[in-house]
Amino acid sequence: MPEQYPGPKGLIPVTSGKAEDANIITRQYLDSILVEMRVLDAVEPDLRTTIFGHEFTSPIVMPAFSHLNHVGENGRKPMTENAWAAKKMGMMNWVGMEPNETFEEIAAVGVPTIRNIKPFADHNRILNEIAHSKAQGALAVGMDICHVPGENGKYDVVDGIPLGPVTVDDLKTYVQAAGETPFVAKGVLSVTDALKAREAGVKGIVISHHHGRLPFATPPLLLLPEIKAALKGTDITIFVDGGIETGYDAYKALALGADAVSVGRAILWPLLKEATPGVMRQVAKMNQELSQMMMYTNVHDTKSFDDSVLHLPR
């Protein structure tokens, strides 16, 4: 009999261990978190959020898209269009695996951007990209610590470039190389890795299963409270991604302890179809939904979330 996962709409068969299963489980978990209403004394909330010393208009941040290299009708690439949307809306930008030349184009937009680096087998390549990111004025640099195995059970290869393992000592080296620039570990999905990342000296983590890379992955929001508690007393910024499609989803992540929420596929199609205007429209809608939920629950600003308003599945 295939394994089944209890969701709010009944049992979900989980048979393959592929990304679709992890993403279905994540979606079902998000939908199963219920919210109570606290409208007395509620006012229109302030969404402004400060991360790594920069103030942004919202705790919703751009995702670490990669490999969107085709050129649009205006001569700009989707990654650059995304950066322009972030700049115009006062948001944090994030960039995935791209060559130095592409990152220079994105950095030229002038929006605070975190550059995410793959765990390349060639450590010199990693150090080179960290140095280049700092030279371009990156807000922070990060690494997909979860992108080590490939589907064949060996180290993955991306765009012909071999990846390799990431040890705590490796992470310490990258943090030291980043210097005053904050370093973020992306792909944390356990208290164990969160504590190791803290030991290495990171300034931020992204709780994520990288859109289902791990077969049968735990929903990020299921582990968020445990990880938040384990990092209590530190200055580590906690980002969350995975299945965040609306401002309502973002609200749940923020109420459970996230400092900021990364949205990916919800803006991917607007980005590819309509470029900057499509992204701006989608993010504006999500900000409206987030503001609505904050008003319904008497949350006045992004420092005042209260997880007691949530009712988690049993």
Rank of each mutant, 00 (worst) to 15 (best):
M1L: 13
M1Q: 12
Q4G: 03
Y5A: 04
G10R: 00
I12Y: 05
P13D: 10
V14M: 13
K18T: 14
D21Y: 05
A22D: 04
T26D: 13
Q28A: 15
S32P: 11
L34Q: 15
R38K: 15
D41T: 04
V43E: 15
P45N: 02
I51C: 05
F52Y: 10
G53H: 04
E55M: 00
F56P: 01
F65M: 02
L68W: 01
V71W: 06
G72S: 13
G75L: 09
E81T: 02
W84A: 07
A86E: 11
N93M: 06
W94G: 01
G96P: 13
G96W: 05
P99Y: 06
N100I: 15
A107Q: 10
V109F: 13
G110Y: 01
T113F: 07
R115D: 09
R115Y: 15
D122M: 05
N124S: 15
R125T: 15
L127K: 12
L127W: 08
Q136Y: 03
G137F: 00
G137N: 02
L139T: 01
A140L: 06
V141G: 03
G142N: 03
M143W: 05
D144V: 00
C146M: 08
P149D: 04
G153V: 05
K154A: 13
Y155H: 14
V158N: 05
D159V: 00
I161E: 15
K172N: 02
V175I: 13
V175P: 12
A177C: 06
V188S: 12
D193M: 12
A194K: 12
L195A: 12
L195M: 11
A200Q: 08
G201H: 14
V202H: 10
V206D: 14
I207A: 14
I207Y: 09
S208C: 06
R213V: 11
R213Y: 14
A217D: 07
P219K: 01
L221V: 13
L221A: 09
L222D: 12
L223K: 02
L223S: 12
L224E: 10
A229L: 05
K232R: 10
F239Q: 05
I244M: 08
Y248K: 04
L254D: 08
L254P: 11
A255Q: 04
V261N: 07
S262P: 02
G264M: 02
G264R: 00
R265K: 10
L268T: 08
P277G: 04
G278L: 07
Q282W: 00
V283L: 08
A284D: 13
M286T: 05
N287G: 06
L290I: 01
S291F: 03
S291G: 07
D306R: 09
S308L: 12
L310N: 12
L312T: 08
